[in-house]
């Protein structure tokens, strides 16, 4: 049986719940950080080909701001927080009070970039620590890395582990949006556990796994 065929609806539901917990806490952190109301959308778990994953947040060559965290511990994996550059610029303005900040206009202000990095740290940290609490697994992240580049180029970095066992991947996606704004999606969280982590996550959540 191939890697992907082992998954049942209850497995996917368990992953959805994991995404819900992680992103829920991250959304609360974001809300505190910006002093704005942040809504979280119901998470989705997608079983998708790599091609489909490259377009999951729009075209694969669309420019995005991405914060990448490598998850270490009992269930290693990759996590991204991805947001449109306009939205990132907006957050930076709110955080730093520098209303001239534009991600599109280099050279970029050091303080602004540092604030963005910190935003990534806080959100990724709260996502992972709540996931660790929920699953009772030992999970931690090293300092996240920030890049502003094409979505596909960023996303493919998260597919390296899974690509060695499968032509399909599983991505747990949660989107957050500012409540006051026009309902626009402000950010995406993508969680991509390593292939060997699924078994441990399912075990931790009490879902049967035949591996």
């Amino acid at each position: 049986m191939s890697f992907i065929d082992k998954f049942t609806i209850s497995h996917l539901d368990a992953l959805k719940e994991a995404g819900n917990i992680g992103a829920g806490h991250a959304a609360t952190s974001l809300s505190h950080l910006l002093d704005r109301k942040i809504n979280m959308h119901v998470p989705s778990v997608k079983l998708a080909s790599f091609d489909e994953m490259m377009d999951i947040a729009g075209d694969s060559d669309r420019k995005v701001v991405a914060v990448f965290s490598r998850i270490h511990g009992e269930a290693p994996g990759n996590m991204f927080f991805v947001l449109p550059p306009e939205q990132a610029s907006r957050y930076i303005k709110i955080m730093t009070g520098n209303n001239d900040f534009q991600l599109d206009k280099p050279p970029l202000d050091e303080i602004g970039l540092s604030a963005l990095h910190e935003l990534g740290n806080i959100l990724s940290g709260s996502y992972i620590s709540s996931l660790a609490d929920f699953t009772n697994l030992d999970l931690y992240i090293t300092v996240p890395a920030l890049t502003i580049d094409m979505f596909g180029a960023v996303m493919s970095h998260g597919l390296l582990e899974i690509s060695q066992v499968s032509d399909y991947g599983i991505v747990i996606e949660t989107t957050v949006a500012e409540a006051s704004a026009t309902g626009q999606i402000t950010g995406h969280f993508f969680l991509l556990p390593d292939p060997e982590s699924y078994h441990r996550i399912f075990l931790a959540l009490g879902v049967e796994s035949d591996e």
């Binding site: 790599f50 060559d61 596909g152 180029a153 970095h157």
Partner: peptide, 23 residues
């Protein structure tokens, strides 16, 4: 051409692949 994909091309068509990172 998608990720992990391959195609051939003959003029006047052109061929493209998007979002190369470490690929």
């Amino acid at each position: 051409v998608g990720i992990a994909g391959m195609e051939t091309v003959q003029a006047p068509d052109i061929i493209r692949t998007s979002g190369l990172g470490s690929c």
